[in-house]
Write a protein that binds this DNA or RNA. Structure first.
Lengths: 336, 336
DNA sequence: CTGTTAGCGCCTTCAC
DNA sequence: GTGAAGGCGCTAACAG
């Protein structure tokens, strides 16, 4: 059986209260008491039962991070930043995978929020739209990561997807590309990512007086490497194939690089490729991949600060917080 | 304030005990009671406080998964398999990053094990050797993932690293390579991964009567993409440069592909490359990467089953469980 | 089959 | 500055 506060108190010959005082380094404890208690603490190798503490205090010092898929590099990199920052703040992060399935997301969210396990939730949602989220009664604060899914009553941290996409496409235009295709997502109402990025893509084309024909957008079931091949083949099959690809994720871009290679096209001389997310892998592909790089570090800090403020009781109205991004031009769009 | 069992009981006009019975679907509950309680449950939208339940039962239904770095694809893929399998078993997984730093690993391990948060721990350790682990008094069961670090008193799930490495190198020999270099890790006592893989590498070379000269092994600080460049340059600088690279991780192999490309060497015509881990990315590189593929699915199942058995009280002596692997020959070692 | 009681381990009023 | 008592929400004994 585990050592309890009472055991320590008994050994030290003091009350549990005094032990608690020492453990939680309370202000007014006499040095003599300190010493006595510490000795007993060490001797018994006491560790507080965090369950009991959480039950008593109503707070656990733990937050949940709900991600669609941990194997998606962008999410694992984001998770890393969040864990890192949280650990500085003395907060434990419980990472959980939702598979991006709305029902599983909802289920996990409900559990996380209602079961007192966690003080707050960071939710990176793909499939959940504002309506679904509105139906969730939150006992604990929730901060959304990623695109703004309709107007929900929740705080939200992300980058300006429309502007970032426009920048990416503008970069392709600047380098002389004219038939620029977009790849990624479904453009379904729930897929806010593709909607916003497509919007930016089209805005850039229109501003340059370039065609925004429908066949230049290829949908994909998800945003993973393996989803790109079919899309690329479809685009290349057209009588007027594109001379550039704007992929809505780096993984799609990497899958595209592979398919272009198999089709015998050279990047960037025959066709340029730009991705989105700036995952580490993109610096090592051949050619290395031009990408939009959201400031993940800042996303992590901002999200955590916002969540901590809510947990502390902040009652401001929900805010949409935007953090910075960069366009990193690498070989896939620059080396001729 | 949250709805409690007592609130439900009051509304339904029954005792808390009966509500508890229904919530945990106990065997003997009359249909009438069922109905009454369910109605109240729904009306108040009751969710059990898992903290209180855990405190009471001594079990939480949660396990911790301690990983060095979640951004390392191999670990995120393993994490995914474990979360998936655990969710089938009704177990929640708390993923935590240790940074591979022994002290942080120990700290997290201690917390995880001693604070009653989790029923058990899956630990994938890089830096922790048997001696350090022996010093940890475990209140909860721990199962190790990965290489066997000395003889610890813990269960352990992994593949036969020596034999897998020998297979990888044999494959290179079979394809006509003669000056085969190895890349990865430090060969330090605590770095069991590199020790075992190096052992298999040398065994294969010796069996074929090939040289195992020291200069053909290049150390790296870690096993990541960015660690490979220096090692590759060092190997290529030698008067008799290698005609094949056996990298101790896929990430190293991918970093090597990039560096070889920058040095103007063609893979596999000039030099073959083989990796280890079979991360998803390796199917999409150009050329695609030959790799040792540990059965991650089986690692996950075996580790969870073993851990669950321990949690249930199994008292067998600690076992080293080996799961299968495959050599997946792809372009980086086959296409001439 | 269901109600009453007690206590998991901790922290926090309230007295002293 | 320290001791005593109560309760966070739940379930496991033990009656009935």
């Amino acid at each position: 059986m585990a050592v309890t506060l009472r055991d320590v108190a008994a050994l030290a010959g003091v009350s549990p209260r005094s032990v608690s005082n020492v453990v939680n380094d309370f202000r007014y404890v006499s040095p003599a008491m300190q010493a006595k208690v510490r000795a007993a603490l060490d001797e018994l190798d006491y560790k507080p039962n965090l369950l009991a503490r959480g039950l008593r205090q109503g707070r656990t010092g733990t937050i949940a991070l709900l991600l669609p898929e941990i194997t998606v590099a962008y999410f694992s990199e984001l998770a890393h930043e969040i864990v890192e920052r949280a650990s500085q703040l003395g907060i434990t992060v419980m990472i959980d995978e939702t598979s991006g399935a709305p029902n599983r997301e909802l289920a996990l969210l409900e559990v996380a929020m209602r079961s007192s396990w966690v003080d707050g939730v960071l939710l990176s949602t793909l499939g959940l739209n504002g309506a679904a989220l509105a139906g969730v009664k939150s006992d604990v604060p929730v901060v959304l990561l990623g695109e703004r899914t309709a107007k929900s009553a929740l705080d939200h941290v992300g980058i300006d997807n429309v502007r970032a996409s426009r920048d990416a496409v503008q970069h392709l235009i600047d380098s002389g590309r004219r038939r620029i295709a977009a790849i990624g997502g479904s453009h379904a109402p729930s897929d806010m990512t593709s909607r916003l990025r497509l919007k930016g893509y089209r805005a850039a084309l229109r501003a340059a007086g370039l065609p925004t024909e429908d066949y230049l957008y290829a949908r994909t079931p998800k945003y993973r490497r393996g989803d790109a091949a079919v899309a690329v083949r479809a685009l290349l099959a057209h009588p007027e194939p594109p001379d550039a690809l704007f992929c809505f994720s780096d993984e799609l871009a990497i899958g595209s690089l592979r398919e272009l290679y198999e089709q015998g096209l050279r990047v960037p001389s025959d066709i340029s490729v730009v991705g989105f997310d700036d995952i580490e892998e993109s610096r090592f592909t051949t050619p290395s991949l031009t990408s939009i790089s959201p400031d993940k570090h800042q996303i992590a800090s901002t999200a955590l600060e916002t969540l901590m403020a809510r947990i502390a009781g902040s009652d401001l109205r929900p805010r949409a917080l935007q953090v910075g991004y960069q366009l990193l031009a690498r070989e896939s769009s620059t080396r001729q």
